[in-house]
Design a protein around this nucleic acid. Sequence first.
DNA 1: ACCAGGGTAAACATGT
DNA 2: GACATGTTTACCCTGG
Length: 684
Amino acid sequence: MMQESGTETKSNDSVIQNGAGPDNHLLECTLRESRSNGETPLEVGAVELAHLQQQQALQAARQLLINQQPFSGIKANKRNDKHPSLQVPVSVAMMTPQVITPQQMQQILQQQVLTPQQLQVLLQQQQALMLQQQQLQEFYKKQQEQLQLQLLQQQHAGKQPKEQQQQQQVATQQLAFQQQLLQMQQLQQQHLLTLQRQGLLSIQPGQPTLPLQSLAQGMIPAELQQLWKEVTGSHTADDVVCNNHSTLDLSTTCVSSTAQPKTSLLLNSQASTNGQASVLTLKRESSSHEEYTHNHPLYGHGVCKWPGCETICEDFPSFLKHLNSEHALDDRSTAQCRVQMQVVQQLELQLSKDKERLQAMMSHLHVKSTEPKASPQPLNLVSSATLSKTASEASPQSLPHTPTTPTAPLTPITQGPSVITTTSIHNVGPIRRRYSDKYNIPISSDPMISVDFLSLPDFAQNQEFYKNAEVRPPFTYASLIRQGILESPEKQLTLNEIYNWFTRQFAYFRRNAATWKNAVRHNLSLHKCFVRVENVKGAVWTVDEMEFQKRRPQKISGSPTLIKNIQTSHAYCSPLSAALQASMAENSLPLYTTASMGNPALNSLANAIREDLNGVMEHTSSNGSDSSPGRSPMQGMHQVHVKEEPLDHDDNDGPLSLVTTANHSPDFDRDRDYEDEPVNDDME
DNA sequence: ACCAGGGTAAACATGT
DNA sequence: GACATGTTTACCCTGG
């Protein structure tokens, strides 16, 4: 048994590494490549860039999806280690970090300039973009396959007009989707630009390509329109007339005769390089030449950033010369500028659509983070005021050291599929006091609140977040251990299984295993609510729910905050009252059956009962011998001690039979009274 | 300042 | 002896 569990632990550890390591590895690789790209004078075409960035987004999206499942993500991570993204039919070149990589998001976090709401919105927008890109990419691939198939057919069967038409249609569709992909990419650029403009994201010196391209391609339509007016003058009116839409839909029929067709944009054709933007450039140069010398939107890394140009200019004067000569005011440049405006406009529209879609998705998923109500912040998105300290707490790197190290790096928060809701937090168990306030959990401004548990649906919902986000769960070890045990089908787990549960449910516990495992063992031994039961297979740990309830600090009546929260927070949905539990136990009901736990109605009822009793019993606990603040008022009333009878329960599979006893130790921990547990003594 | 709860580290014992 | 498991103690931090 011991050997077996030991093997399990080892394999589990390896799984942990596989689960967390490749992920980081992938991200690090992405970052590295991005940075190396920024330092490389060579450039790739926009299409290739778009493909690569879309693959990045795909990777991230896959990661998000994969991580929703406990173990599949580990395998997927392994797969990601091999960089399957490079198999896409694009030339493998340098990657420009125009997709907001997790590192960048982490950077944002570290800069502590984002409010949680902002961050949440950004993350979700990014996620939505990634997913949409994935869809487009898949569709694009299908179109590509179809095109190739038809090409083959054509080769064998000879060319026929219909097939040619079909082929053309497919090609057109493909181009359209390519354009969509490019637009998605540019949307992300704009997204990033918005971040930059808001000062939320600073671009490191090693990544000059990013801001330049973003600036070049992510201009706000209003600015472009103004620019357009300045540059084109009388042409503007024609544009408006020409537009089929009220916006800047500059179709190819509208642009001038020398205008590039739509495909030229997405294919990044080597359009002749002369354009009217140079006028503006000159205008700017005349005003503040120095200012734009190193920050010209159209110049970066010795390369002209005019769309489709990429002419190498050794220095800024040569670039200016090139700009004046090649991108002068002519129809072609005008057309290019129009196309760019159109792209920007469509990006704006796309962004608004994506926002709407995001809202719909969130409302569908009952995500509460964007609710306008007070302090609906997700757990991981702490307020900026407390970000630093919380970050150190939440950082997996900070796990081994003491909580007094606020300088620890911020946790790389991987965006999880769900967001922590305040209601569900309290369903788990006691919130770790020192973290609860930092996490800005509105409901628990009183750290002594003891709303808890037995709401596995809610808990599972939050678990989805913690499975992916390396955020330290704000629950005590005892609560987590208990949750893990109660989630097990037999309400009992071996130590190793508890370990596995931790690593499975919390990305945070996939690191520093020695630390938290020690803490788990410590808590198991320390807290009386955890009962060790030996059977043939070995020792398993169970939860003495009454003991667990006893430790709950009860200051409900004395806490105006709590009272207020109770009134305003729909009673936390699910805590099962101790009274109800006791009643169930007395009636030989399966205390921890999944049915009872998964019944929201029952949980609500239990919660109401519990709250009422808490309020009533606060001052009626007549057990004078127990003045422990950790004692629940319920215990004075019931004095029911759920205890295990190992002799009665089947060694193999049967759930533990629960009998009630009348006596128990009042203290939850420290004074663990083993006389109360003759079973264990007997067994040991 | 004190206390309690919680986290972390570590020593130690025991069993495999 | 190595390792897993379990117990215990000590120290620290946080919040009341």
